[in-house]
């Protein structure tokens, strides 16, 4: 059976949740571990931590965070941000991450994908791709969307798969933060050219958007942040809706 994963994403800066949430009765709303644990209990299928600054000085904090998370959160954990070497990946995986997500560093040195896949297995090598339509094609960006690469999304996705990526996390910069829904065109471009799992990211704002994402052949996970963090939708609501629409999900 094929099922769709619902994946909340937490932006982390120096061990604290950045954008905040409005969960009531949290003892510490800024603690990523407490939030992740709450999402586990609420029926999330996986958690992504995105270390948005990921400076060398904050790395020990991130390692401690993962170590605590692995003791309290019993669903898969992906960590992204600032991973530039196999040693970086090893430290994060040993601390408690199940997968590492690489983005700019994979574009700077694509062999890093192969090195991580060879050392730890493809299943923990996630390649995150940020893309934006430039008028003629979906162009890949680095450094949180600041630098254009000239690379076409589908081409880069295929290369990443060939180098050993076990999963692709595809974010549409055109949609991110807009709440206008996933970028179906960009996601189709990736799924049609690859055979590994694809997580859709960017733009989710209401229940119908989850359905649109889930209906893209080859999309296996749906990532969202603010709709969950600010309580606009619960994981259970999304899963009940998708189940009602005949999309297979693990019940919350």
């Amino acid at each position: 059976m094929r099922s769709i994963r619902i994946v909340p994403c937490l932006d982390i800066d120096a061990g604290r949740v950045v954008k905040g949430t409005n969960f009531i009765d949290l003892t510490d709303a800024g603690d990523p571990v407490e939030l992740a644990s709450r999402y586990d209990a609420a029926g999330a299928d996986e958690i992504v931590f995105l270390d948005i600054t990921a400076s060398s000085s904050s790395r020990p904090i991130t390692l401690d965070l993962l170590s605590r998370a692995a003791s309290e959160v019993f669903i898969p954990l992906t960590i992204g941000g600032g991973i530039r070497s196999v040693d970086d990946a090893r430290a994060l995986l040993r601390a408690g991450a199940d997968k590492v997500s690489i983005n700019s560093s994979a574009l700077a040195r694509p062999e890093l994908i192969s090195e991580i896949a060879r050392e730890f297995g493809s299943q923990c090598a996630v390649v995150a791709i940020d893309a934006k339509f430039n008028g003629s094609f979906f162009e890949v960006y680095t450094h949180g969307g600041r630098n254009a690469t000239g690379l076409e999304l589908g081409t880069w996705a295929k290369v990443a798969e060939k180098l050993g990526a076990g999963e692709l996390l595809v974010t549409s910069m055109d949609r991110d933060g807009t709440k206008e829904g996933f970028d179906v065109g960009a996601l189709r471009r990736v799924t049609e050219l690859t055979t590994i799992p694809v997580i859709a990211s960017g733009g989710v704002g209401k229940l119908d958007h989850f359905l649109e994402g889930a209906q893209i052949e080859g999309v296996t996970g749906l990532l969202a942040a603010s709709v969950f963090h600010f309580g606009q939708l619960s994981i259970a609501q999304v899963k009940e809706f998708l189940t009602h629409e005949s999309i297979v999900v693990r019940p919350a």
Partner: peptide, 13 residues
């Protein structure tokens, strides 16, 4: 088998 997304990376019953 080919035809499935591999790895299977998901919840299953």
């Amino acid at each position: 088998n080919e035809g499935e997304r591999v790895p299977q990376m998901q919840w299953n019953t």
